[in-house]
Design a protein around this nucleic acid. Structure first.
Lengths: 239, 239
DNA sequence: TTATAATGTAATTCG
DNA sequence: CGAATTACATTATT
């Protein structure tokens, strides 16, 4: 079966004897491969690439038979076809990761912007509430209407304890860990430091690089401000 | 079974290039391997890698002199050293992108969570405001105190028009484009489809893959709710 | 066992 | 040099 080992060896050996440093063998080219640009072996011709790309779009993981056919059509070894598809898939994947990063980044920024707006709005609401509260209390003080009842159907009673927070006590210390980022600028370029597996921290000369130290982030997370209040009626279902 | 794998290259190369000690022993020697022969054609020895990695940590782009010295020490050609560093930098970079993605993802999720919480809080505040307003109006109706003045220092006057929104009119249609995501699950694995440059959409057999279609996102963005209101005193500076 | 997907690595070419 | 390629190797899976 499989008559392995393509002829390239011969070429490689020759090359080695000549004294070239690469012990790679591939340069060999049975058929055409007239590269438009230069005297290059390696590197498939534009036409070959075009066909391969076309096939890849249709099926990134073709059957052996199709690969064989492609090999015949393009004058390449079946092995080369197989390898090309493998590499192409790997390339596709890493490209995809980069694109995902950019998309996610965009959405992060948008969300952060919305978050900030919402925060401001929240602050506005809080201030309004504060004022209304004060105003209410003043009015109640002026009226001195029957000041001790616990029902919730009266005219001048405080209805604001049935299914919501106690505005005066719980609301003023909400935002605490939400105020960073928004200017993070995780530029996905110019990285290069902090190698793959081990975490390099001490020996880096400040070459910018590694953006997120993963500590400036993630300091917010727990803002469960509703959990211990008397909110039991799921008012947010209204929305 | 065919005796495949030839590493004559390796042998030839070693003989040709140098004969420096320490190098290539594992090229000939099936050092404690499950697979006896057919070992590395390329692939530097663990020791070489170790030295290279160590140097890389210190400086990912060393001077020619240092590279030369490394070449001597490791029994490699200066060219090989240079290439190794180049490849190493490229690897480092793509690794970094992946890590950045994961970090960004985490932070996105955290921010989305915070955003949801904030939104709920906002809703709560809005409801409270509503109730207080109603209550206020009722009380004002009951009191029928001097009901037409525009100063802002009275007892039962409405103070809420000086530097804030008109609560009853502007507040109820705020959240409109903020209600998606939060369950996006951009799993950064298993991508592989949608090739690098062209966007493949029709011919994909549903192999999951490409996560964000970039359209489900980005539908929110403009929630400038404060711009046309009479807010001119930058109350958010208090925070 | 073979085949192959997935991942990593050495080397080459081009800009 | 960096980016993209090509070929090969290794490991895991089936």
């Amino acid at each position: 079966m499989l008559a392995r080992r393509e002829q390239p060896q011969a070429a490689a050996m020759v090359k080695l004897e000549v004294g070239l440093p690469g012990f790679d063998l591939d340069m060999f080219n049975p058929v055409q491969n007239i590269r438009p640009s230069s005297k290059n072996k390696r590197r498939f011709s534009d036409e070959q690439i075009k066909s391969l790309e076309f096939m890849f779009e249709n099926d990134s993981r073709p059957e052996s038979q199709i690969k064989q056919q492609l090999a015949n059509e393009l004058g390449l070894q079946p092995r080369q076809i197989a390898i090309w598809f493998q590499n192409r898939r790997a390339r596709s994947k890493s490209k995809q990761i980069e694109r995902d990063y950019n998309i996610l980044k965009e959405n992060y920024d948008a969300l952060a912007s919305s978050y900030e707006s919402l925060k401001r709005e929240n602050q506005s609401l809080r201030i309004q509430l504060e004022k209304l509260k004060t105003q209410n209390e003043k009015e109640q003080g002026n009226k001195t209407c029957e000041s001790n009842r616990s029902g919730n159907s009266g005219d001048c009673e405080s209805q604001n304890t049935s299914d919501m927070l106690d505005t005066n006590e719980k609301i003023t210390f909400l935002f605490e860990g939400h105020d960073h980022m928004l200017s993070t600028e995780n530029k996905s370029k110019n990285v290069e430091n902090t190698d793959g597996d081990r975490v390099v921290l001490e020996m880096m000369e400040g070459t910018d690089g590694s953006l997120t130290s993963s500590e400036k982030w993630c300091s917010f997370e727990s803002n469960c401000f509703l959990d211990e209040s008397s909110c039991s009626s799921n008012w947010w279902e209204y929305w």
